[in-house]
Amino acid sequence: MRGIPQAVRECITAVLREESSRYRIKKMQYQFVGKPEVLLALLMRDSLEQLASNYELVVQVKVDNAYHIYEYLFDNSGKLTQRLEVMERNSFNIQF
């Protein structure tokens, strides 16, 4: 999260806090958007700062006493564009 601009980070945090008072970010990754040939050219020149990016977060959330895992997609201004629930394979064979 430290790699995200401060203003964007505050927007993302505000959305997550609205979802639940208890959450844990498991993973965050950049999602670069644009035409493939343009993206490749910029990556080859190492000009990442010129790339527009979305932010994809995988977050554990406690809602109504139940625990869920969601994948959030935020645009480069920190606005939420998509939320999908992640259905993880169960672990009963190593828990019981």
């Binding site: 006493n65 139940a66 169960n90 009963f92 064979n93 019981f96």
Partner: peptide, 14 residues
């Protein structure tokens, strides 16, 4: 092992 999940609980019958 038969497992059932419901309302935040998991039940294992073995």
């Amino acid at each position: 092992n038969l497992i059932h999940k419901s309302k935040g609980y998991a039940y294992n019958f073995r």
